[in-house]
Write a protein that binds this DNA or RNA. Structure first.
Length: 474
RNA sequence: GCUGGGGUGGCCGAAUGGUUCAGGCGGUAGCCUGCAGAGCUGCUCUAUAUGGGUUCAAUUCCCAUCCCCAGCUCCA
């Protein structure tokens, strides 16, 4: 490949069209993704976003780009303050707990770590500097409550991302007190003056005693780590307005440069056909599902397997189905490893080529994962056919394995499949005993041992090449 | 209310102005197997929310209706 990812098209929220992807710097991509607000365990809807972003990143890497990925951690806002006060512990101790939980969760879901996880509380000076710039430029002002607001009317392009016309915005049923302090109802806070409810949480800065508004952290931190203009900014669709719209306003008003070239938003998920909500009892964190015994990789597969711009209906039936789909892929790899044929039949190459072509063109088309996975399963079926005919040599099997492994660098669901793990000696003894019994056609004892092993989490399968076993993953 | 995205087989989900509308899961039958599992093959009955329209031809384009979801309320 002469130049990285020459044919990737991505749907850009700014234009509402699929556009050919061209990064600012050849072969390098800079991505900023909105991370979690660390006031609770993240839920599966959060993870759908993070998995989508992971898939995007892995695909860009697969296509040869060097990717720099920054994900923020929102550790200062109403919810984190409230949470820490409720528990009676300092804000940073409260948020640190959920930051750790978040890292544990994404590891379980095989989400590749970002290059940088900046925390809002560690970038107060950067935010203050940015706000000062906005004030100097006359697009920000101090309100009657001493908070600092961004003047939406001063930024003529406001609304270009969400296509919302400022004049048509509903004033909102809930009119909070501080809105009276603003010149315009739609102006948003850059800096919030301290109030008694904030308790111990405040910074003494040139802007006064207070804390940053929500939107400013992303503008300040993305610019610091990725530059005034960078390639891709992702987030859930709910963030499009007002959060991302406000980021654009703050950043572009401050730098007079285009903030982001490609905005990508993932749709939300529903659970059992309904909006996920605590009061509906269909609200799940990753931990909820793991404690029910589900395989995190099956969860990853499920959340990934629907196109990111499509609303997705999460069901437990779907989760079972995802687990079985992943098992099918893993079984396929196991079969490959058992091939003993020496002679190349030459039937494999064309399928490998087709797979790479179909998978690639599907993913290049705005991450069309459904079609890409279909290509993979078509391939699996074709090769299984050949395996049934003993028409796959050891050497060809290795080529297939390498190909799948390469694609799994993108999917992240198959992982290492071992068919030669070391067995605990007691298990080894049982397997041998069963082989003896089978030889003597003592089916009753053989089946009893098989059942016994199953209870121990070991699945036995008798094949033409002899007994095969693997651990029951789930 | 305004704005936007959707409604595809038993379930999840691709795709498309036109030969048989991917793939996965589930079910079922057959092959294989001592059995089971894995795998392969067939089947899963009129599958494209409803009613109109445009067209030689629509699931795909247009209109209306119903339903779901989201934004307008610091939720991915």
């Amino acid at each position: 490949m002469t130049s990285a990812g020459t044919n990737i098209h991505l749907f850009n929220t700014l234009t509402r069209k699929k556009e050919k992807f061209k990064p600012l710097t050849d072969s390098e991509v800079k991505i900023y993704t909105c991370g979690p607000t660390v006031y609770d365990y993240a839920h599966i809807g959060n993870f759908r976003a993070f998995i989508f972003e992971d898939l995007l990143k892995r695909w860009l890497i697969y296509r040869g780009f060097k990717v720099t990925h920054v994900m923020n951690l929102t550790d200062i806002d109403d919810k984190t303050i409230k949470g820490s006060q409720k528990q009676g512990i300092p804000l940073n101790r409260f948020t640190e707990f959920y930051v750790e939980a978040f890292f544990e969760d994404i590891k379980k879901l095989n989400i590749q770590a970002a290059d940088k996880y900046p925390k809002a509380t560690e970038h107060i000076p950067e935010m203050v500097a940015l706000i000062k710039t906005l004030m100097t430029k006359g697009v920000a002002y101090k309100g009657e409550d001493d908070s600092i607001y961004f003047s939406v009317n001063k930024f003529s392009e406001y609304g270009k991302l969400s296509k919302i016309k400022v004049g048509e915005l509903k004033t909102g049923a809930r009119v909070s007190q501080d809105e009276y302090a603003k010149e315009e109802a739609r102006d948003f806070a850059l800096w919030k003056a301290w109030t008694p409810e904030d308790g111990e949480v405040f910074w003494e800065t040139e802007l006064g005693k207070g804390r940053p508004g929500w939107h400013i952290e992303c503008s300040a931190m993305s610019t610091k780590y990725l530059g005034a203009t960078f390639d891709i900014h992702c987030g859930g669709i709910d963030n499009m307005f007002p959060h991302h719209e406000n980021e654009i306003a703050q950043s572009e008003a401050a730098t007079d440069k285009k903030f982001v070239n490609y905005w990508m938003h993932n749709e939300h998920l529903q659970v059992e056909g309904k909006k996920m909500a605590k009061r509906l009892g269909n609200f799940y964190t990753l931990r909820d599902l793991l404690s029910k015994g589900y395989d995190p990789i099956a969860i990853r597969y499920l959340l990934m397997s629907t196109h990111y711009r499509q609303q997705f209906n999460f069901t437990f039936e779907g989760l079972e189905s995802a687990k079985n789909a992943v098992d099918r892929l893993r079984n396929f790899i196991r079969r490959l490893k058992e091939t003993k044929e020496q002679e190349n039949r030459g039937k494999v190459a064309k399928f490998v080529e087709k797979l790479e072509g179909d998978f690639g063109s599907a993913m290049d088309d705005d991450l069309n994962i459904g079609t890409a996975i279909a290509a993979l399963f078509d391939f699996v079926r074709e090769i299984n056919n050949l395996l049934d005919l003993n028409a796959v040599s050891k050497k060809e099997a290795k080529v297939i394995e390498d190909t799948i492994s390469k694609l799994d660098q993108v999917l992240g669901v198959i992982g290492k499949v071992e068919n030669r793990e070391t067995l605990p000696s007691e298990v080894e003894v049982l397997v041998q005993k069963r082989e003896e019994a089978r030889k003597n056609k003592n089916w009753k004892e053989a089946d009893a041992i098989r059942t016994q092993l199953k209870a121990m989490g070991i699945i036995l399968e008798d094949t033409a090449q002899g007994v095969r076993w693997h651990k029951d993953k789930s």
